[in-house]
Amino acid sequence: MKNLYEKRIDQTKQILAPLGEIHTRPQFGGYGVLADNVMFGLFLQDELYLRATAQIEEVFHHHQMTRLRYIRRGLPLTLSYFQLTDAGWQDPTLFLQLATLALNGARQERAEKQNRERLKGLPNIGGYLESLLLDAGISNQEQLKAQGAKACYLKLDTDDIPLSIKVLYALEGAITGYHEAALPAEKRDELRSWYETRHPTATTKYRR
């Protein structure tokens, strides 16, 4: 017998078929929902959250959808995803309308990023790290700098094996204009102390 998550995945694929082939992939401790390789939804603990741009947040609020918030290692984190309500699950037409807004918004953000300052233009930010940041909802230099290295690191560090401390150094260097190996010693010591309080049993087996 299928569990609730499996039933809801099947329901999602069936209702959202007009949007294209729907598939999932591991993301943020749950499963991202994608169409044409564009992520517009997120399953966490049997609940579906739809991605919102600033332009459609008001619509989601109107339908009493609540923003995804959770605590990650003692820090409150907020993502631009809103929980589909029971009314959405019970009304396929409404579900499709809301998901269409989410997908169109995600596609628009992807197109518009070419007109923004790309994260990849910063020191230490290669294609791999940029893709992680984009998936976490950090799409430009302004957002990276506003949130800071520690909060951004926590959004990325979602697997059982922690991200390397070098990623934390890279984020700080990207914000302050240093290559990660050239960060001032005082700042490196501060970041290492912060990192070790969150990964007290960390070994050398890190993701890059």
Rank of each mutant, 00 (worst) to 15 (best):
E117G: 13
Y31Q: 13
T78L: 11
I56L: 05
R51G: 06
D36Q: 13
G105H: 02
L122N: 04
N37H: 09
M39F: 03
L98T: 02
D46V: 06
Q114M: 14
G30H: 06
D86R: 14
H61S: 07
R110E: 10
P92T: 01
F60N: 03
G121W: 00
E57I: 13
R69A: 02
L94K: 07
G121C: 08
G127V: 14
K120R: 15
A35G: 01
N115R: 12
L122R: 15
Q90I: 08
L77P: 07
Q45Y: 08
M39I: 06
N104H: 12
Y70G: 11
G105T: 00
I71V: 13
L42C: 06
E57A: 12
E112P: 06
A54L: 12
W89A: 08
H61M: 01
F28K: 09
E112D: 13
K113M: 15
M39V: 02
G105E: 00
L44C: 11
F95G: 04
L119T: 04
D36K: 10
A99S: 13
T100W: 10
L75E: 11
A54D: 11
E57G: 03
I125D: 08
H62P: 00
L94T: 05
G41K: 03
Y70C: 10
L44M: 12
T100N: 12
R67Q: 14
Q45W: 09
L77A: 06
L103R: 03
L44W: 03
E57M: 08
N104I: 02
Y70N: 09
L98F: 09
Q114S: 15
V59S: 00
F95P: 00
S80N: 14
L50C: 10
Q45C: 08
G29S: 06
E57S: 12
Q97Y: 03
T100D: 09
F82M: 09
Q64D: 07
F60V: 00
V38Y: 02
T85E: 07
H61N: 04
L129E: 00
R107K: 15
W89C: 11
F43W: 04
L44R: 12
L44A: 13
T78R: 11
Q90E: 10
I71A: 11
L48N: 07
S80D: 10
T93L: 13
T78E: 11
I56T: 00
L94E: 03
G30Q: 09
F95C: 05
L48C: 03
R51I: 03
G74M: 02
Q55C: 13
D91H: 07
A54Q: 14
R73K: 14
F82N: 05
Q108C: 09
G41S: 04
L101K: 12
V33P: 05
